[in-house]
Write a protein that binds this DNA or RNA. Structure first.
Lengths: 137, 137
DNA sequence: TGCTTACTCTATTAAATTAATAGGATAATA
DNA sequence: TATTATCCTATTAATTTAATAGAGTAAGCA
């Protein structure tokens, strides 16, 4: 299941991407329009800023804004920041690899084999989509 | 992340599928060979039996065995029983559909659009693989 | 300068889910 | 009828996720 954090983060990014003006947008506006707990959204936007997707401005007229163009923002990068590893098990993860404690041999592990295929299928989707591709109206 | 339940369930199914004999295999044997808590595995195998993948026999010489041939067991079906919905959000689920409480309009929702693609990519993998395809040695 | 605004940061709590354990009941075999 | 191994319910422990609280900091403006 997709975490609320990721869901809210994606919605916020899409909201910012669909702005005509590039002026900063306040957290409160996004929270209201997308039905998100404002405090929770605060922490999500903060982590998106720290990972280089968003810029921010304090004080009156402040808020968050996209640093890059929507078509330059790959979903692989967004998902890794919001949701964590794209792989469903650490033993097939490109960026977060870890050996399974209980597993004898990856080469003959059926879970490993299946999850490798799943990982590649997901990567294919995330790599071929940018934030711009998700904006509809 | 893949739950331990699913991981253990898949390993147990693969273990049974790789048996030469079709004789019942005891829980304790599978638990030992695959490094799984026996009690936890008990409940997993029970649910696999109740969903029609396994048969069981009580008493001496008893245990679990596959009811169908490994190449007849689709991963879509296995995953839905062990892990639940294949979709990452209910609003794109084929078998467990639910409308998002917070979402105005699915047709213009960017999360919906992305997760629809992810669902299809995953389905493609699970539909094209049977238990037999996961057995390596 | 001082007031207002809006992001920043840390800490805590609540809720939900997952994982594991315990122990007795039931059925099959010899 | 003793033994073996699954069946079933209930409970607890551990982990993760979601939400909340409140004080701190920087920017803008009169």
């Amino acid at each position: 299941m997709l975490s609320k954090k990721t869901k809210y983060g994606l919605k916020a990014l899409a909201y910012l991407a669909s702005q005509k003006e590039k002026a900063p947008v306040q957290i409160s506006e996004i929270a209201k329009c997308e039905n998100i707990s404002q405090k929770f959204l605060e922490s999500i936007l903060l982590s998106l800023r720290k990972s280089g997707f968003l810029g921010s401005k304090k004080g009156k007229g402040g808020g968050y804004y996209l640093i890059k163009e929507p078509n330059e923002i790959l979903m692989t990068d967004v998902m890794r920041v919001l949701e964590g590893p794209i792989s469903m098990v650490p033993c097939v993860s490109l960026n977060f690899y870890e050996k399974c404690a209980d597993c004898r041999d990856e080469a003959t592990c059926s879970v490993n084999k299946l999850m490798l295929m799943v990982r590649d299928a997901n990567l294919e989707v995330y790599r071929n989509n940018t934030l711009a591709d998700l904006i509809i109206s």
